[in-house]
Design a binder for these strands. Structure first.
Length: 418
DNA sequence: TCTGGGGTCCTAGGACCC
DNA sequence: TCTGGGGTCCTAGGACCC
């Protein structure tokens, strides 16, 4: 083994994944639903608001029969999380709710309570970092932890420490998680799925052939639906088969970077560190309409939504202290095709009016003949507000800039108010 | 019965500069 | 007159992840 890998092979990296996180958080509130098929998802509607008004604070006393069920749901939306009882029926994350209703009409449907989710997310991460300080945030319900230099972090390959963290999280939140511990992030991520829910799996270097190679290539974090299909078309299903492929052949089919990475991944090699701090690259807001909108016929409605999205993303930037230089829009048409347009400003901004203006310019450059399903606004090329030269208290009035003059002129001519 | 919302990273061509 | 590289920024699209 080369010396640079001898060092990395002694690393112990954990991947911790909260079990059915969104659903489990709701079950803390509504313990009467434990063991029943429950799905979290959908939009805007809040049927349980009515429930809470009827039953006050005694949420645990609400009879099961009073909860909304999947078969009564109408509209767009997908499942965020399903309880394990619901998964028995074949429903799961990212499935359309209307499809899920066919498979499990009796499942109870609850909306996402983002505030509550974020509260529990902060809580479990705080508990984890109090035990293992080196944590990488991978979203609301997932983290990586570096056990390597933690006292006792190597005992039983990390199992002892994993159990301690699992218990600490359960004791204070009532939530369970699954943990995989391995020599690197790639394997730890796969390992955390071996024993779900509430499981711990420890994988060592020597377990590669027995535990990893029989798995589907799709289990590798970074091989998605497209690459998985392409590999299958080339006769490669398992990670072992991928590992046996010629690296040059993979490069020929998947490109230099991706092909070479695939080969390394199949051999369980990954030297990425656990990254504790990172700066955001972009912030965005988007919305899917209840019905597809037409740029001309539904102009007023579209314009109002557009303004709201700009205001929301501006508020997000201001709240978090960022300004951005690249303003863009995203459209999803009724055929699900996506178009994006963006434009870079000379000075970064967090101002809703300027964002609205730049985004409006971008929107005009996009095809608007087909019906629209989704509209989004994105601000990229972010920097910290304090570090930026543009002071946010000096907001340029809409009509002062030359592009704005041109835009107003254009709008006057066309009747468009984007 | 179609398929949410918030992100990251990569690629690739053209502009522009050295 | 033709022929070069490299580097960076901008824009559009796409794969992938949670």
């Amino acid at each position: 083994m080369p010396p640079e890998q001898a060092a990395s092979s002694t690393r112990r990296i954990a991947h911790l994944d909260m079990d059915a996180f969104y659903a489990s958080v709701e079950l803390l509130r509504y313990p009467q639903l434990k063991g029943l098929p429950v799905v979290i998802g959908g939009g805007r509607r809040r049927d349980d608001d009515a429930l809470r008004q009827r039953f006050g604070d005694a949420l645990a006393d609400i009879p099961v029969a009073a909860f909304p069920v999947l078969k009564d749901y109408v509209g767009r939306g997908v499942i965020t999380t399903a309880t394990y009882a619901a998964r028995q029926f074949g429903v799961g994350s990212a499935m359309g709710l209307m499809k899920a209703a066919k498979l499990c009409p009796q499942a109870i449907l609850l909306p996402v309570d983002f505030e509550e989710i974020r509260r529990y997310s902060r809580q479990f991460k705080a508990i984890a970092t109090s035990i293992v300080p080196l944590m990488e945030d991978r979203g609301v319900d997932e983290i990586y932890l570096d056990f390597t230099d933690v006292p006792g972090g190597q005992r039983e390959g990390g199992r002892v420490l994993a159990r301690l963290i699992q218990k600490a999280i359960h004791d204070t939140t009532g939530l369970t998680c699954s943990v995989g511990v391995a020599p690197n992030k790639l394997i730890a991520k796969m390992a955390s799925e071996f024993n779900k829910p509430n499981g711990i799996s420890v994988v060592h270097e020597g377990d590669l052939q027995t535990l990893i190679w029989p798995l589907s290539c799709r289990k590798i974090n970074g091989i998605g639906p497209k690459a998985g299909e392409k590999l299958a078309g080339l006769g490669i299903q398992t990670i072992g088969e991928l590992a046996a492929a010629e690296p040059q052949w993979l490069v020929a089919h998947f490109g230099k970077a991706y092909g070479a990475w695939m080969y390394e991944a199949a051999h369980g090699r990954d030297t990425r560190p656990v990254v504790t701090e990172s700066e955001p690259v972009s912030m965005s807001r988007e919305t899917t309409f209840d019905r597809d909108l037409h740029a001309v016929k539904d102009r007023a409605e579209l314009g109002a939504v557009f303004t709201r999205l700009c205001e929301q993303v501006a508020a997000d930037l201001q709240r978090k202290g960022y300004v951005g230089k690249t303003i863009g829009i995203k459209l999803r048409y009724d055929d699900f095709k996506i178009a994006t347009r963006d434009h870079s400003l000379s000075l970064p901004t967090d101002d809703a009016v300027r964002i609205r203006q730049a985004a409006g310019q971008s929107l005009k450059r996009a095809p608007l003949d087909k019906r629209l399903r989704l509209l989004g606004v994105r601000v990229g090329a972010l920097s910290k507000r304090d570090a930026a030269t543009d002071s946010s208290d000096k907001k340029t009035p809409l009509a002062q800039t030359a592009p704005a003059q041109a835009a107003i002129h254009f709008e006057a001519q066309t009747g468009w108010l984007f």
